[in-house]
Amino acid sequence: MSVLVVSEQAGGAWHGMSFETIAAGAEAAAALGCPLQVAVLGSGVAGLAAEAAAKRVSEVVVIDDPALAAYTPDGFAAAVRQAVEQLNPTLVLFPHTYQVRDFAPKLTAGLGKAFLSDAVGIAVDDGKLVFVRRLFQGKLNADVTPAGDAPYFASIQSGVFRADALPDGGAPAPVRNLDVVIDPAQIRTRPEAPFQEAKGAVDLTAAEIIVSVGRGIKDPENIPLAVELAQALGGELAASRPICDNGWLPLERQVGSSGQTVSPNLYLALGISGAIQHVVGMKGAKTIVAINKDEGAPIFEIADYGIVADLFEVVPALIAALKE
């Protein structure tokens, strides 16, 4: 019985969510009263394994294989499956990254198990694991229990657990290499090197004030209203994903998991519902203002100031007041 955290790295560098997930695993292991194991996967990852072993964990297991040098869903699902079969954990936790979304459901389906993806909480109730998931685009929470016997599988949303809550251990934890067999012939996809599109001129990360628009702006003809407010405040204009998907603003102005991550002094969210993909990109803002017609919009959970109203009534009034 153990909690196994499957960490993520690329090219010898940690994914930032790895230690958040190890922190989640530490809480779960304490609640279950069992050891915490951390798996490090890749090719040439001994250095990272040593870093993980410096934390207060029970054991670090290493799956080091040339077939894992580049990420493929076939290779990673096979590797983690063998680790699970050898270690027989009670609970397997992943960071809810794009990579995990790509292979973890394959792994769990192969085992006939549920995958409690994108969890924002873990509790143990009467000996049973209960996960908190967000439904209906974050408008409602659900307590969810997996059926059947262990192992159980879940991924942890970004920013729920704090990486700095994870203390360093005393002596380094033991590091063990796992023997897995990954047949390169079973890897059916051929990945090429990751690349960035030509970088836009807009660096939102440097902005002190950001005015950001979401679906509530309704029509591309209304974008100039937001531009005018941004100018009156001396800030930059940004947007949530649907606005860029529609081509109403260029992708380089997108804030969120697939766009830029910003932490301005002031973030004004106009007609943004607050889907998690957006929130992870802006929740570090010092002051957050949300203007939205829907009082149930999740953006109000993280807003310092909220106005439940039609943005087309409030924004022109703001512009007028700023110009006075």
Partner: peptide, 28 residues
């Protein structure tokens, strides 16, 4: 393979101050 035990409204992580009034009043 997984079962919803209970649905509920999310807890707020911040205490939001809600500002009311007409557009002009709220803006000011």
């Amino acid at each position: 393979s997984q079962t919803v035990r209970r649905l509920y409204l999310p807890h707020k992580t911040k205490q939001t101050q809600f500002i009311t009034g007409s557009g002009k009043e709220a803006a000011a």
